[in-house]
Design a protein around this nucleic acid. Structure first.
Length: 444
RNA sequence: CGGGGCGUGGCGCAGCCUGGUAGCGCAUCUGCUUUGGGAGCAGAGGGUCGUUGGUUCGAAUCCAGCCGCCCCGACCA
């Protein structure tokens, strides 16, 4: 992409409304625009990142054996009357009346609808297990949206739902999502810690929040530091095998948000590993048994001929929130510092003197080579001054910058700047292009 | 919903207390000079001061209602 054709409305000054780093940077880098309280338009740069995050989530869901579908944003109120939540959900639910005076709502979540879909087709234990997910916009009319996309009213969420014969089988589905989440967040450059969460009236041990540690986190968390650096199982996990050991290795270590915090147990953690910090919830997995399948009559016939309600779980990932979380984890004074996997472009090519024939030609060559190599470069071919170009490129945070100007070209040289480390490599133009095309920079 | 605050060119702000020609920086446009870390000079365009009503000879300024937004709290992916 050429910057002269792109749409990148960067702001030199910080908008007054933005309080935290991710919100400030998303506005300054021209990634989002607020359209109403907690409602954002995704501008091209932000939209690119959002799609990358979404795609990672999707790939890891698929890898774990979940099956994608897409449910609508609007739902019938009758569905929610069946589960009893229409009256219970409160003002957070946006209620809409259509021209025929029918009650609709903009979905804040989809348990009812997925249950309705499931019961429409599945009757036998032979239809189980099923693990279905979608990635769709949700709306929750929060009393007070804040922190930009981290707590918006409209947000993009991946929500998966599992259907199993009994609690034991549900645990298998639960573990799949548990492990899938570890891999998902790790691929985005995040260290997400699974923490025990409140299971409410269902009870049991099958609810975890996945939290990334950040100073601007909304909740206070306490955990064993060993858990933070444990790493993810990685793509070679056999999701059809026994995942319990992977889960146990993590749940054995202490980790809890403040509402689940047990100071006595925390005290058992060796002092040097006792970590209390703030965290951002980016995922939540939950087993809730027959809470919806009972009232909504989602039953299957068991081998013994008896009909019983299916056991369900739901598994959410805040896709749009993740963008804020990633920036909170990866930024500096100058701007965003995107992990390569979610960066809006793979590399930036800075033409220091657009209009200079040699420089233009060198940039064009670099741009074409990097494009063909699949590096998805952004070429700054504008006639702005070098200082502004550097500042903009740092702000939008692409992992690599290839800086080409007449001064260096006289020697046949160009410079590669690694955004994360700030490291600079002066190389011949050919080497610089070739190494960027291969992604061969260890300090990236 | 309780408490606090803000609404003035695209962005950031001053002016309001003490009513009388709407201002500054950035951005934009034109010209010249510049060009390796957010250039300089000269000029230009752009605002019915959130909105409605009231007070007044006169309202950005004082008063009231409404709308929008932000911050603290309870709620949440």
């Amino acid at each position: 992409m050429r910057l002269s054709r792109f749409f990148l409305p960067v702001l030199k000054e910080t908008p007054a409304d933005a309080q935290i780093a991710s919100h400030r940077l998303m506005l300054r880098a021209g990634m989002v625009r607020q359209e109403a309280a907690g409602i954002y338009a995704w501008l091209p740069l932000g939209f690119r990142v959002l799609k990358k995050i979404e795609q990672i989530v999707r790939e890891e869901q698929d890898r774990a054996g979940a099956v994608e579908l897409l449910m609508p944003t609007l739902q019938s109120a009758d569905l929610w009357r069946e589960s009893g939540r229409y009256d219970g959900y409160g003002k957070e639910m946006l209620r809409i009346v259509d021209r025929h005076e029918r009650d609709l709502l903009y979905g804040p979540t989809n348990e009812e609808m997925i249950t309705e879909i499931f019961r429409g087709y599945c009757r036998s234990y032979k239809d189980l297990p099923k693990l279905l997910y979608h990635i769709q916009w949700k709306f929750r009319d929060e009393i007070r949206p804040r922190f930009g996309v981290m707590r918006g009213r409209e947000f993009l969420m991946k929500d998966a739902y599992s259907f199993d014969l009994d609690e034991q089988a549900a645990r298998t589905s639960y573990n799949r999502m548990f492990v899938a989440y570890l891999n998902t967040f790790a691929r985005m450059g995040l260290k997400a810690v699974p923490m025990r969460a409140d299971t409410g009236p269902i009870g049991g041990d099958l609810s975890h929040e996945f939290i990334i540690l950040a100073e601007t986190g909304e909740s206070e968390v306490f955990c064993d530091a060993a858990l933070v650096d444990m790493g993810a199982p990685g793509p070679d996990v056999d999701f059809d095998g026994d995942l319990q050991p992977l889960v146990d290795a993590r749940t054995a270590l202490y980790a809890a948000t403040d509402e689940m915090h047990e100071p006595d147990r925390f005290a058992d953690v060796p002092e040097e590993r006792r970590l209390s910090a703030r965290g951002i919830e980016v995922g939540h997995i939950f087993y809730f048994g027959t809470k919806y399948s009972d009232p909504m009559k989602a039953v299957v016939t068991h081998p013994d001929g008896q009909d019983r309600a299916v056991h369900m779980g739901s598994y959410g990932v805040g896709v749009s929130r993740l963008m804020g979380a990633i920036i909170e984890a990866h930024h500096d004074e100058a701007g965003c510092v995107w992990p390569e996997q979610v960066a809006p472009f793979g590399a930036g090519v800075i033409n220091l003197k657009a209009g200079d024939a040699d420089t233009d030609a060198a940039c064009q060559s670099a741009y074409e080579t990097l494009s063909k190599a699949g590096r998805d470069p952004l070429l700054d071919d504008t006639d702005n001054r070098p200082g502004g170009k550097f500042a903009t490129m740092d702000l939008i945070g692409l992992p690599y910058q290839l800086i080409i100007g007449p001064r260096g070209l006289k020697e046949g040289k160009a410079e590669v700047k690694i955004r994360r480390s700030g490291g600079r490599h002066e190389l011949s133009l050919e080497d610089a292009i070739a190494r960027l095309a291969e992604g061969a920079f260890a300090d990236g």
